[in-house]
Design a protein around this nucleic acid. Structure first.
Lengths: 214, 214
DNA sequence: AGGGTAATTAAACGAACGTTTATTTTACGC
DNA sequence: GCGTAAAATAAACGTTCGTTTAATTACCCT
């Protein structure tokens, strides 16, 4: 009886593997994390990982899938309505940062493994990038801003904005080491508003009063 | 005579290892790249890597050192003069992006390995972060902008700006897969000016004429 | 010319890697 | 209850990993 308590829910092992693999990949990197470490942390037999996911790379794919599908859902919801240009962007930034914050380890894994070119997985990621590109491209052209700068295609627009929104989550471990206590978890809302402000109006805006030496 | 042509220059093997390791780490990730792959690509015996660098991790440290020291040099040069606030930032952005472009693989390795918390290496990276934090903190306080937003300490300022400047280099492999040919190498100057414009004035600035629906 | 330091080599170390197999245990519909 | 498929297990697969050793070669100095 007692010894069997770990098997109450059917198929909870699969979720436990994911729940444990994502933070490990995020904090150590995909290549630096072994399947045995995941299995031990998830309290699961080593063979179960390949049993449920097929391979280590497929496990990574599943993580990317989960993150991207949620991110795309946010983009579709916030950028496909009748609101004004700036309002849509603000809503998108707020929703996206809230989403990032809710699954920051998924974000870290996705971002950190993006540049790596395992020959089969890069085209896979490009598929998600293309969907995001379509959404943003339509949004920009709907507002007549396809050529915002001399050369900034939707992919560049998307890259820049995503980088800005993710910067805090990417650098948090380092920032906390540099200056402990400076990042507080309860200020995600403030962070989103700061990103909104910078992206739309730059850092100069709320400093007009101290700009007398222009 | 002929068979010894590979040993003309003294200690060129060390440089060859670095020249080969950096792009491999950048494109595949540190954890996914083995020392044997580096040795073969550098046409060097496997043992030479540990002979010159001590360990694989020390090799990574050296790469971080090279990148950070150059980045700090740029920051010190551009942010420690008598110029006006906005001028200094513009010069810094242009110089930093030119620097990033000149050693983008070093940048990729540094950024991608930053979040990983190998217990000894994270404090090491925090040392560089602290130096950058000092430079930026002094720069901001010199211009009375220490509290630019309700809560944006110099570390956050630095993280955001670095993320923005690096976004193109981080996402380039993905962007080229999503939309081939959209990123041209000769437009680094244009890219720097775009980042300047967004960081200082936001995306709305050069779109005033199409802003009639505000 | 020769002594000594640096550079290079081949080989092997144990450990950890991702994956697979064969077997046993559990859970659930009929 | 039984039969069947899913779930879980222990063990081993062959490879590759980072590192080390011991021996050899190349180079510089007086």
């Amino acid at each position: 009886m007692v010894k069997q308590q770990g098997r109450q829910k059917k198929s909870s092992s699969r979720e436990r593997i994911l729940d444990v693999a994502v933070p490990l990949f995020a904090s150590q990197g995909y290549g630096n994390t072994g399947l045995r470490e995941i299995a031990k942390a998830a309290d699961v037999n080593l063979a179960m990982i390949n049993y449920f996911f097929g391979s280590k790379k497929a496990l990574l794919k599943e993580i990317l899938d989960i993150f991207f599908s949620g991110y795309l859902e946010v983009a579709r919801r916030e950028l496909n309505n009748e609101d004004e240009f700036a309002v849509q962007i603000q809503n998108f930034i707020h929703s996206a940062i809230k989403y990032f914050s809710s699954c920051r380890d998924y974000l870290l894994v996705t971002i950190n493994e993006l540049p790596h070119d395992a020959p089969e997985i890069i085209e896979y990621k490009a598929g998600w990038g293309r969907q995001m590109n379509d959404i943003l491209g339509r949004y920009l052209s709907d507002h007549g801003r396809s050529q915002m700068f001399s050369t900034m295609p939707p992919v560049a627009f998307c890259s820049l904005l995503t980088s800005m929104m993710a910067s805090r989550f990417l650098f948090t471990p380092l920032m906390q080491q540099v200056q402990p206590g400076v990042i507080t978890d309860d200020s995600v809302q403030d962070y989103a508003e700061m990103i909104c402000s910078v992206f739309l109006h730059g850092i100069s805006e709320n400093q007009e009063e101290s700009n007398q030496n222009q």
